[in-house]
Amino acid sequence: MDKLLFGDNQFFGINHMSEEKARAQSMRFQKIEAVIDVLDAAYDEGVRTFMCTTHDRIGLVADHIRANPTRYSDFVFYPCMPYAHKYANAVTEDGPLGALKRFIPNEGLFNAALRGGMSLARKDVEGVGTLLIDAEMKMFEGLNTPIIFVQNVVTDLILGLGFNEAFRIFADHIRNRYGAEPGFITMNTPRLVPVLESLGIENPIVCSNINKIGFRMSGGMEAYERTLKNHSFRAIAMSVFASGALKPDEAIEWICNQPNIESIVFGASSRGNIRNTKELVDKYWPVTQPA
């Protein structure tokens, strides 16, 4: 895993600080070419992993990378699924079964329908769940996806409901079908890590907000510190700038001094900001982290 991963919130008008700024970003990145320009800048600055939602528009990015294998020979995707709005909208419009039909993968309609239909009838979460994972992964066919994440809203809902079996189903399917490592995005690291341990998911990859002001670190900063020190997991820090509340230098210096953090995911819209972040990480985190 690289020290620095490139996120995608900025491309989808997601900004936790300002609705005005979010709208300006939506306008700027309306055309996929604008997104690809920024990804090119990141790639050329040496930030070659794109941690992205399975939003329909990411499919266009995937198509572009697939079409230019020489240009992007080291390009890595870390897909984060599901893009929840897509399901919410589909379920409202077509009902749960109709929505499922819309998302079943192209592996032979009959097979998928049978797998889905039988699973639904048996109330078998594994059958439906793995089918949906495959549907989400369709856009990345033939591309390098060594880590595949489940999004925080799903992780945390499963955690809250106590539906722990779902984590094991996800981890097994990601390993068996994609030969990839399962990753878990969460807003509740101190609660999630012990649950993953209890399920025998060893040294899991866990991505969560970690920043100097403790923004959206649920359970509190101390619980995060204890978990980072005492548990075995591969931590990725997101929201290290706390949505812009922290100055870049201060934020990166702090995060680089925390124990056991393997990687940082950040978003930026300009080559200058990408380069600055990369330089700060190289300055404060000079030693290569163990892969």
């Binding site: 945390d156 809250g160 509740n188 403790g214 670190m217 649920s218 509190g220």
Partner: peptide, 8 residues
Amino acid sequence: TEEVDFYI
């Protein structure tokens, strides 16, 4: 925003 104990 005040921190919460569990966030979904």
